[in-house]
């Protein structure tokens, strides 16, 4: 009897989560998958086939964009990690009390404004008539106005900036849990600062590094606003392609196929990343 009751309680408690998962994640994906398998053969006539996927592989622009999105996202993840790690280390280990809270909040401040405003801020800075260009001209370092928008560096800057918090927070959490005495014991045992970083700090921070990287990578891969606004028309970001298939061309079939490919790609890269770093998803998420 009591086990029946506890089972019922379990399902009732799980219900909101399950409903959410089913209606908002699984159903749309099943629907999208079905749509992606439809090939338009005439007006309101469809056949089931992988033709939409074939379109993707036969058109270099599509899979070039696809590959570019992947490696740009990986690059932005690595860059975010390289910049975020020292910041997180500094906040977690070298400051305490008020300073720590203040610095932590300063990392949060950019996220009080919407992504649109944040990206727009970068545009104000980087465009031809923007702040940086003007200052450089004023200082006489450059002759005429320079355009710093609409290139890969601008996209990268925007991506790193947008996702920094999602790297720094898990890193601070794991580094905070690293006992100072472990580092001191390292020095006591004769290790140099570099070997302590490599053999003690990084292995300890690994779960944080991996979960930060997964989140940042997913966010970059799925980011639409930043690459389009900072990269311009030719940003060639895969989400841009999906958007134009769905909205501009009303080609839901191809758009769905693209969406599925993106899902597959992100899962694959995360999987490979986890294997390479010898971490398990369970371990990372338990952190």
């Amino acid at each position: 009897m009591s086990s029946d009751r506890s089972k019922l309680a379990f399902w009732l408690l799980m219900a909101p989560l399950l409903i959410w998962l089913v209606t908002l994640i699984i159903l749309p994906h099943v629907g999208m998958f079905l749509v992606s398998l439809r090939e338009k053969v005439g007006v309101r006539e469809y056949e089931t086939s992988f033709a939409n996927y074939a379109v993707f592989f036969n058109e270099p622009l599509y899979w070039n964009t696809f590959a570019r999105t992947a490696y740009m996202s990986i690059a932005s993840t690595v860059l975010t990690l390289l910049i975020g790690f020292p910041i997180a280390y500094y906040i977690a280990k070298l400051t305490r009390g008020r300073t720590k809270t203040t610095l932590f909040l300063m990392c949060l401040i950019p996220f009080w404004v919407s992504e649109l405003v944040r990206t727009f801020g970068w545009m104000i800075l980087l465009r031809e008539t923007g702040v940086i260009s003007n200052v450089l001209q004023y200082l006489g370092l450059i002759g005429g106005p320079v355009e710093m928008l609409y290139n890969d560096a601008a996209i990268m800057t925007g991506l790193v900036y947008t996702s920094m918090l999602f790297m720094v927070v898990p890193l601070i959490t794991t580094l905070d849990s690293l006992d100072d005495s472990l580092i001191e014991a390292g020095y006591d045992l004769g290790a140099s600062g570099f070997s302590i970083l490599r053999e003690i700090v990084i292995p300890h921070a690994m779960p944080g590094i991996v979960s930060g990287c997964i989140v940042v990578f997913m966010l970059s891969l799925g980011n639409y606003l930043t690459p389009i606004l900072l990269g311009g028309k030719d940003s060639l970001w895969f989400t841009g392609l999906i958007y134009s298939q769905f909205i501009t061309r009303f080609n839901w079939e191809l758009g769905s196929a693209f969406g599925f490919l993106l899902l597959g790609l992100s899962s694959l890269i995360v999987f490979v990343g986890l294997k390479l770093s010898r971490q398990s998803l369970g371990k990372t998420m338990a952190q």
């Binding site: 006992d179 005495s181 472990l182 001191e184 014991a185 006591d188 045992l189 003690i200 300890h204």
Partner: peptide, 12 residues
């Protein structure tokens, strides 16, 4: 050589 209160052993 120092022995720490919480032992400071490396968990990994």
């Amino acid at each position: 050589a120092m022995v720490f209160q919480n032992y400071a052993l490396y968990p990994h």
